Simulated scan of single mutants.
Amino acid sequence: MQTFRLILTDKFIWLLSGAVLLATLLPVQGLAKDIAGIMFNAGIFAVFLLHGIRLERHEVKAGLRNLRLQGTIFVWVYGVMLVIGLLLSLALGSVLPADVALGFLFLGVLPSTVQSATSYCAIARGNVAASVVASAAINIVGVFLAPLLFALLARSAGVEITSDTVLKLAAILVLPFVLGQTFQSRLRPWVMRHRDLTGWIDRGAIALAVYVSFSAAIIAGMWSRVSGAEFVWLAAALLLWLGLAFGGTWLLSGWLGFVRGDRKTLLFSGAQKSVAIGAPLAAILFSPERAGLVILPLIFYHLAQLFLSAPVAVRLARNEND
């Protein structure tokens, strides 16, 4: 019962699902598309500004002391998950549209989530402080590392990091985080008092990015370019990846001898992938028509990881009481 309650009350699941459905039924175009693009850039700026404000410096210092755990999470996210994404991208190149197959590599280079990884770690009674620092640090590094890794591995797909791309990444993703850290002492009390409002800004901006990207792909004929059989291949590959990600992190943490709380941190911080980084990054690297196809694996993986994380977290918490 608690599992279903978590899923039903997770507003982000419904918001992302609604964005995909709305883009399918009423894709944004014309003047509204230009306005949505401006709102999207402003929203993503706000998201990373809020990340900078929320993450306290003493939390970063405390979490970084657990170098063994943080290092393992980093290697898993940018090593193992990257290799899985690359292999799946290559293997699916003959059965999926090129940009959808490329989306598996794109998914592989992305950092883990911040909010949901920490939330499910708390539900599972894991090491929440380490989860916060791990997810935040991986996301900060991911702003720089993810596009570079992706461009390096996807040159044949015409992906290049130009000076304009670097400037746009810095202006939309890096600058607001730095500003948030700089003015944290003044702004954080207000942000923490208005968590509901700032939480909706987070979710709304990401949902808007998904809506704009999917709208362009819909207008370009996405559903006619991805057949029913190809969706079966997509679903099967994502289920395989979820099994490898969640099962692999849990087995690895046990083999390395981590305490149970740290194992839960590695599980949720290592196995999840961030649409908060992925959606805006795809919008910067690709044309809107391509971005919608590239983030298709990311959207479905993100939704699936939330549905899977709820029962896993509840089960792990129950085991603590047994």
Score class of each variant (00 low, 15 high):
residue 6 L to D: 02
residue 9 T to S: 04
residue 9 T to I: 04
residue 12 F to G: 05
residue 15 L to R: 02
residue 16 L to I: 14
residue 17 S to N: 09
residue 27 P to Q: 15
residue 28 V to L: 13
residue 29 Q to T: 12
residue 31 L to D: 07
residue 33 K to F: 09
residue 34 D to S: 13
residue 42 A to R: 14
residue 43 G to L: 05
residue 45 F to D: 02
residue 45 F to T: 01
residue 48 F to S: 01
residue 49 L to R: 01
residue 58 H to G: 03
residue 61 K to P: 08
residue 62 A to G: 08
residue 62 A to T: 09
residue 62 A to N: 13
residue 63 G to N: 05
residue 63 G to Y: 00
residue 68 R to F: 12
residue 71 G to W: 12
residue 71 G to H: 08
residue 72 T to A: 10
residue 72 T to G: 02
residue 73 I to C: 05
residue 75 V to I: 11
residue 77 V to S: 03
residue 77 V to W: 04
residue 78 Y to P: 00
residue 79 G to K: 13
residue 80 V to M: 10
residue 90 L to E: 01
residue 93 G to A: 09
residue 97 P to T: 04
residue 97 P to N: 03
residue 102 L to E: 05
residue 114 V to H: 03
residue 114 V to C: 03
residue 117 A to W: 03
residue 118 T to E: 07
residue 120 Y to L: 07
residue 120 Y to R: 00
residue 122 A to I: 06
residue 127 N to L: 03
residue 127 N to I: 00
residue 128 V to Q: 05
residue 137 A to K: 07
residue 138 I to D: 02
residue 139 N to C: 11
residue 141 V to I: 09
residue 141 V to F: 14
residue 142 G to S: 14
residue 147 P to C: 15
residue 149 L to G: 06
residue 153 L to G: 07
residue 155 R to W: 07
residue 156 S to R: 15
residue 158 G to Y: 03
residue 159 V to K: 12
residue 161 I to V: 15
residue 162 T to C: 09
residue 176 P to A: 13
residue 184 Q to M: 07
residue 189 P to W: 01
residue 192 M to V: 11
residue 200 W to N: 08
residue 204 G to T: 11
residue 205 A to D: 04
residue 207 A to W: 03
residue 210 V to C: 12
residue 211 Y to E: 03
residue 212 V to W: 09
residue 213 S to W: 06
residue 215 S to I: 07
residue 215 S to Y: 11
residue 218 I to V: 14
residue 225 R to I: 06
residue 225 R to H: 10
residue 227 S to H: 00
residue 228 G to L: 01
residue 233 W to C: 01
residue 235 A to L: 12
residue 236 A to Q: 04
residue 238 L to Q: 00
residue 240 L to H: 08
residue 241 W to G: 01
residue 242 L to W: 02
residue 243 G to E: 12
residue 247 G to C: 13
residue 252 L to W: 00
residue 254 G to M: 05
residue 255 W to A: 09
residue 255 W to H: 07
residue 258 F to Y: 02
residue 259 V to G: 11
residue 261 G to M: 10
residue 262 D to Q: 06
residue 262 D to K: 10
residue 264 K to F: 11
residue 268 F to T: 10
residue 270 G to S: 07
residue 270 G to P: 02
residue 271 A to Y: 04
residue 272 Q to H: 13
residue 272 Q to I: 09
residue 276 A to C: 15
residue 277 I to D: 04
residue 278 G to D: 08
residue 288 P to C: 15
residue 290 R to L: 10
residue 290 R to S: 14
residue 291 A to N: 14
residue 300 F to C: 07
residue 304 A to H: 06
residue 307 F to I: 08
residue 308 L to C: 13
residue 309 S to L: 08
residue 312 V to R: 06
residue 315 R to K: 15
residue 315 R to Q: 04
residue 317 A to F: 04
residue 318 R to H: 14
residue 318 R to T: 04
